Computed example of a mutant assay.
Amino acid sequence: MRQGQKLDRARMLRATMTDAERLLWGCLRMRQLEGHRFRRQVPVGPYIVDFACRRARLVVEVDGGQHAGSTGDRRRDAFLHAAGFHVLRFWNHEVLAQPDAVCEAILARLAPGPPPQPSPASGGGT
């Protein structure tokens, strides 16, 4: 798919979001999730991902039942991992039934880890 076609497809997908995507976008848009900037229906390589926080290298996908066991999703995830992204996937019913829990799971992934501990060899240990 050419770049122009990909952008047109991304625009079309933004205009026709599912109920679950729309609900999750309400949590992610306008830096509402502790200041993290998410974009929706973002071209990444040959794919268009549902949501992406490029700075945190995080992709969030919201899937319906047609994705269960999808080899296409495994290929897509492998590409995204190789490109340095972490992928979180949620089922539509999860987002619709527990949007706050989904947003908390995303926020937990965005949270910085604990500061690295100095190694004992560097004199920082006991």
Rank of each mutant, 00 (worst) to 15 (best):
A15V: 00
D19I: 02
E21T: 00
E21V: 01
R22Q: 14
R22W: 10
L23A: 09
L33S: 10
L33C: 09
R37V: 11
R39C: 03
G45Y: 03
P46Q: 10
A52R: 10
R54S: 13
R54G: 11
R54D: 14
R55I: 10
V59N: 07
E61T: 04
D63N: 14
G64R: 08
G65H: 14
Q66E: 13
G69C: 04
S70L: 03
D73C: 07
R74M: 14
R75G: 11
A78T: 10
L80E: 09
L80F: 08
H86R: 15
V87H: 11
V87C: 08
L88R: 05
L88Q: 12
R89W: 05
R89S: 05
W91F: 02
N92Q: 08
H93K: 04
E94L: 04
V95F: 01
V95E: 06
A97E: 10
A97T: 08
Q98P: 00
Q98G: 02
Q98F: 04
V102Y: 08
V102K: 01
C103T: 13
C103V: 12
A105I: 06
A105Y: 09
I106R: 05
I106W: 05
L107Q: 14
A108W: 11
R109N: 13
P112L: 15
P115T: 10
P115K: 12
